[in-house]
Simulated scan of single mutants.
Amino acid sequence: MTDGPFTPAVGMVDRLDSKGFGPSQEDYDFAEAYLAPGDLDPAWAARLADPERRARREALAAERKARDWPAISQYREANEALAGQPTDVVFIGDSLTEFWSVAQPDLFTGGIVNRGISGQTSPQILLRFMADVIALRPWAVHIWCGGNDMAGNTGPSMVQDYKNNILAMTVLAQAHGIRVILGALTPFNVVSWKPAVGDLSARTAELNAWQTALCAERGFVRADYFSVLAGPDGLMKPEFHRDGVHPTRAGYAVLRPVAEASIARALG
């Protein structure tokens, strides 16, 4: 009960739309520029370094977090549009998943759905798992995240926190008869947006070893993206990235056969 006019933006409401969420045209343009072969356009480097642009994006991020921390709103209308339609696999994760739709849009057709959101950590992905995965009733889910947890995008956390979030997602999936594909963390060293966290190579290896053991123990399908991207030094091969974290189109080209083989095993 309220004493005055109902204010939809405050408290629990009957309906929230996706307004204000999702990638902008600028985000799409940057993704295309990043994924393309050759050197990054110098104009983009200058734009990324612009303090006014950075301040606007930080303000937008703060506004989104205050309104909807896990961004459950982002795919609300898209999920409603899929109601009653057959879904084979939902890919859920962070920017590596979201960028994949730009790099290879034809992959996400015929029952394969992308539900990646850039910058997200495992607790945020867990909170939208019911809305973005379970509600679509897929045969399988492709879970791929962890880099932003290591970088501390939503604050510091423990290794066990990450493990608990992954475990919770897999339990939810299995409880609804959904088969699980776990994507290996890609080769991480340092993250450009938070260099203070230091070298993440050892942590990446630790989390990947845990994921591999979990898949073996519980019968999940393992999508080993690390092996196809890593060079002899354990870092991502230069021809597959620009920033040491996000694959380019060339990187996604070597990831796709791994993903497709994993889907075939999960659905087979």
Rank of each mutant, 00 (worst) to 15 (best):
R249V: 07
V245P: 08
E26T: 09
S73E: 05
N148A: 08
I117H: 02
E217Q: 04
G234E: 04
I181M: 07
L267I: 09
R15Y: 15
Q211C: 11
D161H: 03
R15A: 13
P51N: 09
V133H: 00
G119T: 08
R54E: 15
E98I: 04
R128K: 10
A205D: 15
S24C: 06
R67D: 05
G119H: 05
N165W: 00
G93A: 03
R57I: 12
Q124Y: 00
R218M: 11
Q120E: 13
V141H: 02
D233G: 15
S227C: 01
D3R: 00
G119S: 06
G38L: 00
L127C: 11
I178A: 01
A196P: 10
A49K: 04
F188E: 02
L136P: 14
G251V: 02
M236K: 15
S24P: 00
A45R: 15
T212K: 10
D199W: 13
P5R: 12
L35A: 00
G84V: 07
L207D: 05
I72E: 01
Q120N: 04
D88P: 05
D149F: 14
S73Y: 07
S95P: 04
T154M: 13
G152W: 00
Q104E: 11
G119W: 12
Q124H: 11
Q174S: 09
N165F: 03
Y225I: 12
L182Q: 05
T7A: 11
V191H: 04
R242H: 13
W44S: 03
Q211R: 10
V191Q: 08
